[in-house]
Design a protein around this nucleic acid. Structure first.
Lengths: 203, 203
DNA sequence: TGCAACCGAATGAACGTTCAATTAAACAAT
DNA sequence: ATTGTTTAATTGAACGTTCATTCGGTTGCA
C-alpha cells in the first residue's frame, strides 16, 4: 500500500511539476497536454486518469501551489515583536517566490487569467484563518494605522510579488538585507504613524 | 488623405479595442482571431492587413495601451510639492486603470506571460525619460529616502495595480479619498524617514 | 488604370480528449 | 506458495474540433 501511494503521488506530482515548469516557459496555452505528458514521462492518457480535463489540472495545480505557500506564514510567538513578525512574513514570502520561480509565475498567470473569475477561491481557508486575523490584530492592537485591513492587502501582497519578480528578472539582486529594507519601507507605510519631526526641506 | 487616415485608424483601433475587450474576458488564447474580427466588425483577413500575426497584434496592442498611460504622468511644476506630485501620480495612474479595466487586465496578462521575455520592452522611452528621472530626482533632492531607485519601482507600481484590481474586484470601493489615503501609505514608506517619536506601545 | 483596403470561405496544422488494449497490483481461494 | 479474478493504472494511436493563417476575388478611392 505504501508503494501504491508512492506511485500515485509520484505520477501526479510529476504531472504537476511538469506543468508548472512548462507554463512558466510557454504560458497556459502554449503548453499542450502532449508536452506536459512527455515532460512528466507519462502517456497523454494518463493525465486524464488523474484530472478530468486540462482546466481541472490547472485548478488542482493552483491548490497545489498555494499549499506550498503555507509554510511561509510565521507562527505568532512571544519572542518577536509585531513589527518583526511582519518583516519576517514579508521576507519569507518573497524568498519563497524567489526560490520557486515556477510557482510565482504560475500564480501570477492564474490570478490574472479568466480562470480566477470562473473559480471563486476555494483555498482561502489558509488566508482567512491565518493572514486576515494577523493583520486585523495588528490594527486592533495599534501597531498598524487604523484602516480597513482590506486596504492593506494590495499594498503588501503587491509589493512582495513585485519585488520577487524584480529580483528574478535580473535587474536587481535582492540580498536578504535588501529584502528586509524593502519590507521596512512597507512597514513604515502601514505602521501607526508617529508624531513626526521632519528633517527634510519643506517645500 | 485625412479620410484615408481616419479609415485606417478606425479599423485598426477597432481591432485593438475589440482585442482588449475580449482578452479581458477570455484571456489571450481564449480569444480567436475570428472573434476579434467579428467583434471589431471586420473580416478575419483584414486583421492580417494591419498585423503580421496574432503575436504581432498582441505586441502592438501592448504599445497602444502603454501609450494610453502616458497622460497620467504629471508634469512637474512649481505649484505642487514633490509629495503632492507623487500622490497625484499614484492616484492618476490608479484611476486610469480603474477607468480602463481592459487595459489593466491586458497589461497584467501581458507582463506575466512569456511574451514579455521574448520581447524586451521597446516602449520604455516614456518610462526612461519621465518616470525614472522623476524618482531619481526625488532621491537626490532628499524627499525620498536614500535607496536604489529601482527598489522603488516594485513597491509603487505593484501597489497601484493591486489597488486598482482590488477596487475592480468589487471587494472594496476606492473613493478618491481612499485612493489618496493609500497613496499616502506608500508615500509614508518611501519618504525620507524623519526622526520619530513613537506614540504606540513599544513591545 | 492602379493600388490599397477589405472580404470570407478554404486550408492545414495543432491540440484536447477518447478509447480499446495492455500491464501491474490487490485480493481470494485453494 | 500458486493460481485465478477483479480492479486500478497506463499506454499511445486515432478522432474531431478549433484556430491562425492564406489567398483569390471585390470594392472604392486617386
Amino acid at each position: 500500500m505504501n508503494v501504491q501511494l508512492n506511485n500515485f503521488t509520484c505520477k501526479k506530482t510529476a504531472i504537476f511539476d511538469s506543468t508548472l515548469c512548462l507554463i512558466k516557459e510557454h504560458g497556459f496555452h502554449g503548453t499542450p497536454m502532449s508536452l506536459i505528458a512527455k515532460n512528466a514521462n507519462v502517456a497523454a492518457g494518463t493525465i486524464y486518469h488523474y484530472f478530468e480535463s486540462k482546466d481541472a489540472l490547472i485548478k488542482a495545480l493552483y491548490i497545489y501551489v498555494k499549499d506550498g505557500l503555507a509554510d511561509t506564514i510565521p507562527l505568532e510567538n512571544n519572542i518577536l515583536s509585531y513589527k518583526d513578525l511582519f518583516i519576517q512574513y514579508w521576507v519569507d514570502q518573497c524568498e519563497y517566490f524567489i526560490a520557486h520561480e515556477n510557482a510565482l509565475y504560475f500564480l501570477e498567470q492564474y490570478l490574472t487569467s479568466p480562470y480566477r473569475n470562473s473559480n471563486p477561491e476555494i483555498e482561502s481557508k489558509l488566508f482567512l484563518t491565518r493572514i486576515v486575523p494577523f493583520f486585523q490584530k495588528g490594527i486592533d492592537s495599534g501597531h498598524i494605522r487604523k484602516m480597513d485591513y482590506q486596504l492593506l492587502m494590495p499594498v503588501i501582497h503587491g509589493s512582495i510579488v513585485a519585488a520577487a519578480k524584480y529580483h528574478l528578472s535580473g535587474h536587481y539582486e535582492f540580498t536578504k538585507e535588501k529584502l528586509r529594507e524593502t519590507a521596512l519601507i512597507i512597514w513604515d507605510g502601514i505602521k501607526k504613524q508617529p508624531t513626526t519631526i521632519t528633517t527634510h526641506p519643506i517645500i
